[in-house]
Amino acid sequence: MLKIKNLHANVEGKEILKGINLEIKAGEVHAIMGPNGSGKSTLASVIAGKEEYEQTEGEIILENEEISELEADERARKGVFLSFQYPVEIPGVSVTNFIKTAINETRKAQGLEEMPAKDMLKKIKEKSELLEIKRGFLSRSLNEGFSGGEKKRNEIFQMAMLEPKFAMLDETDSGLDIDALRIVSNGVNKLKTKDNAVMVITHYQRLLNYIVPDFVHVLMDGKIVKSGGKELAHKLEEHGYDWIKEEMKMA
């Protein structure tokens, strides 16, 4: 699904990603963990195509297509999705109109007609039920005055509507109470199929109890320094990151 080879990236002239190699196959869930400032969010933003982040080296290959040169919106239309840690407020544009625009722009780019209103409504109803979103919520201005939990739920609702091939969840668990966490992870799990893939960025093992990863990677100082199965997350929760630093020194 997604192959990353020797990815280097600068933010404001400073190198943040220093050679990342990662392969995520269809049907897999990968977790990226690591201390603050290790480059987790930068990795997600670079894959999503954020302009200010300059990719200096390496390749990002989505289903055999190198996407490094594509704009963020083009990548999105090819099936890349990023659930934001801090979703942006857009006053005056309702959740429904926003998601309709996103879907229809994608269809337009694929040479398809706009989605018929009936199908759109049906899909919105189905996906909002999945995330236990009330009808009134959908006519509110996008993210304006939303609580932290509502914002994250709305992100996953958008993911459900857009049905990306490759979804990245950037600290989707932050700011969520236990009920919201359950709803959000349940949503993600239901959306998971053998044909798509998910990359979860988190500080905490907590989320991984709900969204169970096939692989866990530890990102430190712009590199993946350790990879393992889900048990690695437990070990990190218990012992922190210091033991990895020790291991690195010995090696």
């Binding site: 979703p87 625009t101 996103a102 879907i103």
Partner: peptide
């Protein structure tokens, strides 16, 4: 940041700016 958010949903730059 807001432009990136909109574009990351597949909305082209021109439309994102309009929104």
């Amino acid at each position: 940041e807001a432009l990136f958010y909109l574009k990351s949903r597949g909305i082209p730059a021109k439309e994102a700016r309009a929104l």
